[in-house]
């Protein structure tokens, strides 16, 4: 096979100068011809394995990269769905009816409900301004494929023992695949809620599509600040 030096260095995940020197010193089973590197894939792979190095051809590598990256608010909310008129008079009953609506068929709903309650017992997830973000303590990498946020507008505001003691009218149930994702989604959600106009908008009990478009706007704003 033939690759040029720069691609070769990328495949081996090494600096170009190192690969160049190794070829010159004859330490690596690659033969140089002009600016190209001639090698036998199987031999090189074996060599790399024996020396604790990674070797993968460029097209294989690209596939791997796609799995990284964090989920944004919008896709998570789209997966989670938006529900209105969740019934219940206290935290337990509200959570119970919300969990029943969750669009995750594979999950053990009773278990999830208990885990949410367990987290509430620690401290309330009511973050103020009438918003609560119930979530289990650990992430659920095995039970769900993608992180999701389910938006639940309550039939009537209830006392959630929130930090500012205001009654909660909307819950965002946050289920994530990893701690990293969890933190990312949580911080993005918090950014939206900090904005008073966003909370005002929530108080109008918007329908699914207008909520999602509002979220998309807020998220764009957030990304702009970051960059």
């Amino acid at each position: 096979m033939k690759l040029n030096l720069n691609d070769m260095a990328r495949c081996l995940d090494l600096p170009v100068s190192t690969v160049d020197r190794w070829i010159r010193q004859g330490r690596i089973p690659i033969h140089r011809s002009g600016n190209g590197c001639i090698f036998k894939e199987s031999i090189l792979e074996k060599w790399a394995f024996n020396h604790g190095l990674r070797f993968s051809l460029p097209n294989e590598e690209r596939k791997k990269e796609r799995n990284f990256g964090l989920t944004n608010l919008l896709p998570a909310m789209q997966v989670g769905g938006v529900f209105h008129d969740i019934k219940g008079d206290d935290v337990e009953s509200v959570l119970k009816s919300a969990v029943d609506k969750l669009p995750v068929p594979a999950i053990n709903k009773q278990g999830l409900y208990e885990r949410l309650l367990e987290r509430e017992a620690l401290t309330s997830t009511g973050i103020g301004k009438g918003v609560a973000i119930p979530h289990p303590r650990a992430s659920l990498p095995d039970e769900i494929d993608n992180s999701l946020i389910t938006t639940c507008f309550l039939e009537k505001p209830i006392d959630f023992e929130a930090v500012d003691d205001r009654a909660v009218f909307v819950m965002f149930i946050l289920l994530s695949t990893s701690i990293k994702n969890h933190l990312n989604l949580l911080s993005r959600l918090a950014f939206c809620v900090r904005d008073d106009s966003f909370v005002e908008f929530l108080r109008t009990y918007p329908d699914s599509s207008s909520l999602l478009s509002k979220i998309a706007d807020s998220e764009n704003l957030l990304d702009k600040v970051d960059n």
Binding site: L14, T18, W22, R27, I28, N50, H51, G52, L53
Partner: peptide, 13 residues
Amino acid sequence: DKYRNELMVQTDL
């Protein structure tokens, strides 16, 4: 990291 790589590559022929 690099030192180890280098040593492995150099000593094993």
